[in-house]
Design a protein around this nucleic acid. Sequence first.
DNA 1: CAGTGGTCTAGACCACTGG
DNA 2: CAGTGGTCTAGACCACTGC
Lengths: 246, 246
Amino acid sequence: MLQNENQNTPIFSPLYQQIKNLLLQSLSNGEWNAGDMIPSEVELSARYKVSQGTVRKAIDELASENLLVRRQGRGTFVGTHQESDIRFRFLSMKASSGERIITHSHVVSVEVMAAPDGIREHLGLTKQDLVSEITRILSFNGKPTVLEKIYLPTEMFPDVSVAKLSSYKGTLYGWFESEYNLRMIRAVEKIRAVKDSEAAINLMVVDESEALLFVERISYTYADKPVEVRHGWYMTADYYYQNELI
Amino acid sequence: MLQNENQNTPIFSPLYQQIKNLLLQSLSNGEWNAGDMIPSEVELSARYKVSQGTVRKAIDELASENLLVRRQGRGTFVGTHQESDIRFRFLSMKASSGERIITHSHVVSVEVMAAPDGIREHLGLTKQDLVSEITRILSFNGKPTVLEKIYLPTEMFPDVSVAKLSSYKGTLYGWFESEYNLRMIRAVEKIRAVKDSEAAINLMVVDESEALLFVERISYTYADKPVEVRHGWYMTADYYYQNELI
DNA sequence: CAGTGGTCTAGACCACTGG
DNA sequence: CAGTGGTCTAGACCACTGC
């Protein structure tokens, strides 16, 4: 049905790729939202007039990218940052002692400003565009450990306020989903070591000469659209950043 | 054939998982070595008396873990660190300027010693076991940027020497494969920011107060056996550590 | 051209979940 | 129990590679 039956067609991509793209569309245009169950494999194979195996392969790929989550016997669901199991997928910090990290967020301020140079380009904004800068301090097990400055395009994220942020229980990415129906699916981080006394003072580091991890993160939603820039200064005395290479 | 046909069998795992384990065995026992082509799907399905689709699923999983590499029209090959395309799979550094990084390694020393405490446990060694400590400096585009101390169990890696290391062209992991037939398939890194003046001096950092990235890496070969501990001090003024979250 | 992996189908049966 | 995803098969055909 979707297949390129006539051999003159110049472009060609496997059927399951075409299905994958259609599913991706339904995800990004809001037909299915975070946490929703999507139609069953048999329904989808009827809808697209392909075999169940082909739908499976499309779903398999999306599941491996964490966009969908398969649950045997129940169905296939849209991935969400509100699920406890993947709640900390984007938090790479571990405790040196091995203990579980209890995170607490203290929102210091929200400020609307013209997008600073380094931020503007990453978000594809113009000089006229505004961003909201969220400043917050993350405490791990009661100890202030991370200072974050989060930049969001004001147009996409209107009415951000300290009050709203403070009252929400859960991760910021969970909040983006429930408040703006915007889901982050990918992020890239650049990590450096810095000696930043201003950040250190904010984190109440007594010894101002302590080195900090500086992390610049750019987060993307569907169609690889960048929607968040996040700057983080991490104290790594008691916690470290963990990365797995495969 | 492999299937648990009688329903009393207590343990059960899918056929393709069993096949995957058999393939894993052939990889770890040296039946197929790094870079080799493994038998074709039809051969394997005949050998294990299962359908080609079942073999495919087993191979697919191993390919997604980078243990095998599929090449259409040619065959399926054992992954290797000597391939140019995955040569730098375990090097996460990027240049701030975006330029390609040309790496040069200068081996400073090789020293055999009793395994230090922090190393011994990670490698599962006893107090009697020896390790070889390789000290080297990596330069990126001509500039000394990383100081590394690499700890290898002497029993598994006999006769490491500055001369041998210096004469090998390629990555250390490529050398492990060709010299010891030992392939790293996974690694975990712990990253911190430190202010380490000894390392800084070795890297010829003039300003001794510069912060460095300290990376502790543990590398694993088949069957999740840890075989290397690596400590690295990274200057991140011109280069940064990049990480992708998905 | 023969051999390899890649796609697609149709159908059977299993394992798990929830009502 | 009905409905979901998970496994497995057999077979057809396609796309790519190297000789």
